[in-house]
């Protein structure tokens, strides 16, 4: 338990505890994760050796942290002056944890909060490849913002996939928010345009725009997205306030290609990491932060509309490091 119990003590308020518990629950099944693996690796050696570093590399790779990010990390770790005097592998553990924080934070203050206008309309655009959970994430975020007292409008901008509009409409009904939708096959940009007009006229605080899933190597679909982005830029001052790239936690190295391609045509302001309640650890988001400086804003931890949390680096890294009860 070591580290995690320290971390738990740090959380004082019951609300914070609840949230940490949810993370724990959500991450529970991801437990065969880094720390147990890390501990196992470290305790398997009497001395700090090259083989130890190789095993550490595997532990990072296993969590889908990007290959080059991992290799750089381990290389730096080896050269780290703090490590130089260390003979007992166990002493490496806090250093690794520290360095993971550094890797993400890069001496910046990274804020997971959404960048919303104080008065006036904020537009949130959701993008990503097919099947990552964009529509569900929108529902969850809409639900959360609504509970924060915001007036929410959804735009059913996925006019391509069969059933996508109905899916978002159903969510809108369950959450109790308004939605703008057109028939399947209509121009998604026009849906967003209409939604913006409605949001402006109706005094809405936030407009959440769904888009069709698109693979980042499909040029025409990426151009379509560019167009939607342009319309929002033109119609809404400072818009879009957030462009959120939704990434599935099971995604491997391709996550980097996704982050790169989507940020080329839109201003990606953050990542929503979905399906973290599975066995995947979604480590590729650390590489995304490392390579493209995109922070993670939310994590999805289940299928219910309340199964979403603001990203908390401590929770995430410690979550990755928690010992698995089953082991």
């Amino acid at each position: 338990m070591g580290l995690f119990s320290i971390f738990k003590k740090k959380k004082q308020t019951s609300e914070a505890l609840q949230k940490a518990n949810k993370y724990q629950l959500g991450m529970k099944k991801t437990r065969s994760g880094l720390l147990s693996k890390l501990k196992n690796v470290l305790s398997g050696y009497d001395q700090v050796t090259e083989d130890l570093f190789d095993d550490l590399t595997d532990a990072f790779i296993m969590a889908d942290i990007g290959v080059s990010t991992t290799l750089d990390f381990i290389e730096e770790l080896k050269e780290d002056e703090r490590v130089e005097g260390i003979h007992d592998p166990k002493e490496l553990q806090p250093i690794i944890v520290d360095k993971m924080f550094e890797l993400y934070l890069k001496n910046e203050i990274v804020d997971a909060n959404l960048n919303l206008e104080k008065d006036g309309l904020s537009v949130l655009l959701f993008v990503g490849v097919n099947g990552v959970g964009k529509t569900t994430s929108i529902a969850k975020i809409a639900y959360r913002l609504k509970n924060e007292g915001k007036k929410i409008l959804l735009a059913a901008g996925d006019t391509f996939r069969a059933g996508a509009i109905e899916q978002l409409e159903e969510w809108a009904r369950r959450i109790g928010v308004d939605i703008v939708s057109k028939t399947s096959g209509s121009d998604p940009t026009s849906v967003i345009f209409d939604a913006i007009q409605k949001a402006k006229a109706g005094g809405y605080d936030c407009l959440l725009c769904d888009t069709a899933g698109r693979l980042q190597n499909k040029v025409n679909l990426m151009k379509e997205l560019e167009k939607m982005h342009r319309v929002i830029e033109k119609e809404v001052p400072n818009g879009p306030q957030e462009v959120l790239l939704v990434i599935d936690a099971t995604t491997g190295q391709n996550g980097l290609s996704q982050a790169e391609a989507f940020s080329e045509i839109t201003n990606i302001s953050g990542v929503v990491l979905t399906k973290l309640d599975g066995t995947s650890k979604g480590g590729i988001v650390l590489a995304i932060r490392d390579k493209f400086n995109i922070p993670i804003k939310f994590v999805g931890l289940g299928e219910g509309m309340e199964d979403l949390e603001y990203f908390d680096l401590e929770d995430y890294i410690y979550g990755l490091f928690v010992e698995n009860d089953d082991e």
Partner: peptide
């Protein structure tokens, strides 16, 4: 596009159901 976890996913489904074939989706990525 699945990463390292593909093995866990496939093995568990296979152990539970005796899967007979796999469909690799989104290979146009």
């Amino acid at each position: 596009m699945t990463g390292q976890d593909a093995v866990n996913v496939a093995s568990t489904f296979h152990n539970t159901l005796n899967v007979t074939g796999c469909l690799l989706t989104k290979l146009d990525s």
